[in-house]
Amino acid sequence: MVRVLFLRRRWMKLAGSGVILLAGMVFFLLNQKGLPVIAPSAPGELTEHLTTIFTARARALVNGNYEGLEAFYDATTTSGRFALNHEIGRIKYVQEWLQKRQVTLTGSHLDLAVVDSSSEGDKGWASVSQHLILSYRHQGEPQETVNRMGFRTLHWVELVKRDGRWLINRDWYWDPFETDDLKPEIAPGTAICKALPPPVKGKYRREAAVAYADRYSGVRLGPGDGRYNRKYRDFTGLGGDCASFASQVLSDKEAGGIPRDWVWNYHNGEGSQAWAQAAALVYYLLDSGLAVRLARGDFQEVTRSTSNYPYGAVNALQPGDIIGYEEGGELSHVSVVVGRDSAGYVLVDSHTADRYHVPWDMGWKSRTIYWLLQVVY
């Protein structure tokens, strides 16, 4: 994680210095079999090779078949092999998650922007923005059922030219799919509940909070989407923007409308620790009385039936509530609950990595500890 964060800062430094220029936009559709239908691509040899590489990777992620991906990586270097193995690992994770949760992918849409690219001799560099929308349904649901979840990843890619082809030597990005724990031991069919909990009364504007989260999730679902709210600084290069995004959802006048104070505040491009840091935000919400913790535990603990939560604590969450993610004893991420899919699975939005209507546990490990916070303001 430290390695990725350092390189992410490099990306943000490049962006802030004005180096990033719009070089081309490429749109894809992947059908149910994962075969790409590609619109006319932007000119440039490097861009064309990147288009081919990212299309093949998206196809492999969707259909689970990663054979042949090695053709796009420089396997003669340690960094090239690492990038390839990381990609294979995340594909395995996604396929295992789908199997454990009894979910079937039914289609996908890839929106790829090669934001900037350059080359010198046999070495190349590029910054790439990828929006991936996955359609899915739960097993047993009608064929016409469609749920959509979306991800945005920003890549800084180093390439090398071998035998006339550009190959990936390094690929740095915030990955929404963890790859070092590929066997989440979870019983199939758990954590699903269509029985909605009674609404929480209060001043918190939950519908507006969800609408804000969807609008500024960073994931492009159509024209005008795929942006952060420019009123706020992007803290991605300073450790992550997830807490700032959650703070916006909770407090912005267009969103939840919870009043800020001197501990939890944003002013002149700067956010307080409670505003911009995941653990500090969680503790602030609890200590201030703005939220209560329904449960803290691993997947099985927060989904099992108890006397207080017959359908599991996670199913007591309401749209606009907060989930914290603890790994290795550290609260490192927060997301915003935005609703449920057709089967009743709780969905979240977040920044870093950007997620839109993603199942709340997708991309996390079997060892992850979840903090379920209900806003009571």
Results as ranks from 00 to 15, higher is better:
residue 242 C to P: 06
residue 239 G to I: 06
residue 184 P to L: 05
residue 274 A to C: 09
residue 251 S to G: 09
residue 242 C to F: 05
residue 221 L to N: 11
residue 273 Q to W: 10
residue 303 T to C: 06
residue 226 G to T: 03
residue 183 K to C: 00
residue 195 A to V: 15
residue 255 A to K: 00
residue 293 R to Q: 15
residue 232 Y to N: 07
residue 271 G to S: 04
residue 297 G to T: 00
residue 254 E to C: 04
residue 228 Y to W: 11
residue 292 V to A: 13
residue 167 L to V: 02
residue 170 R to Q: 15
residue 292 V to G: 12
residue 203 K to W: 11
residue 298 D to H: 04
residue 278 A to Q: 01
residue 277 Q to E: 15
residue 210 V to I: 12
residue 217 S to A: 14
residue 198 P to C: 06
residue 192 I to K: 08
residue 243 A to V: 07
residue 200 V to I: 14
residue 253 K to F: 08
residue 229 N to C: 08
residue 301 E to C: 02
residue 272 S to R: 13
residue 207 E to Q: 13
residue 291 A to R: 11
residue 238 L to H: 06
residue 268 N to T: 04
residue 235 F to N: 08
residue 228 Y to I: 10
residue 288 S to E: 09
residue 287 D to C: 09
residue 250 L to C: 05
residue 224 G to K: 14
residue 296 R to D: 01
residue 275 W to P: 11
residue 195 A to P: 01
residue 208 A to E: 15
residue 169 N to P: 00
residue 291 A to M: 10
residue 257 G to Y: 07
residue 250 L to V: 13
residue 171 D to I: 01
residue 163 D to N: 15
residue 248 Q to C: 13
residue 207 E to R: 14
residue 204 Y to L: 03
residue 234 D to R: 02
residue 267 H to M: 05
residue 267 H to G: 00
residue 241 D to S: 12
residue 261 D to F: 11
residue 174 W to D: 14
residue 245 F to C: 09
residue 270 E to M: 06
residue 303 T to M: 03
residue 191 A to V: 00
residue 180 D to A: 11
residue 260 R to A: 10
residue 231 K to E: 12
residue 245 F to A: 12
residue 305 S to H: 01
residue 176 P to T: 07
residue 269 G to F: 00
residue 266 Y to G: 01
residue 288 S to M: 12
residue 218 G to Y: 04
residue 219 V to I: 12
residue 195 A to S: 11
residue 299 F to V: 03
residue 222 G to M: 00
residue 282 V to Q: 08
residue 248 Q to L: 03
residue 279 A to M: 04
residue 163 D to K: 13
residue 214 D to T: 08
residue 167 L to W: 02
residue 217 S to W: 07
residue 185 E to W: 04
residue 171 D to F: 00
residue 214 D to E: 15
residue 232 Y to T: 02
residue 303 T to A: 04
residue 296 R to G: 02
residue 220 R to V: 08
residue 241 D to Q: 09
residue 198 P to W: 03
residue 227 R to T: 13
residue 228 Y to H: 10
residue 227 R to I: 14
residue 259 P to Q: 06
residue 208 A to F: 08
residue 189 G to D: 05
residue 201 K to Y: 10
residue 302 V to E: 03
residue 265 N to P: 01
residue 280 A to T: 02
residue 246 A to W: 07
residue 180 D to V: 12
residue 194 K to A: 13
residue 254 E to S: 10
residue 224 G to D: 13
residue 288 S to F: 09
residue 270 E to W: 11
residue 217 S to V: 05
residue 164 G to P: 05
residue 176 P to R: 05
residue 258 I to T: 15
residue 273 Q to Y: 09
residue 304 R to Y: 05
residue 215 R to V: 08
residue 249 V to I: 12
residue 201 K to A: 15
residue 279 A to Y: 02
residue 172 W to G: 02
residue 186 I to D: 03
residue 278 A to N: 06
residue 208 A to S: 15
residue 289 G to M: 13
residue 162 R to A: 09
residue 198 P to L: 08
residue 184 P to Q: 02
residue 234 D to G: 07
residue 295 A to F: 00
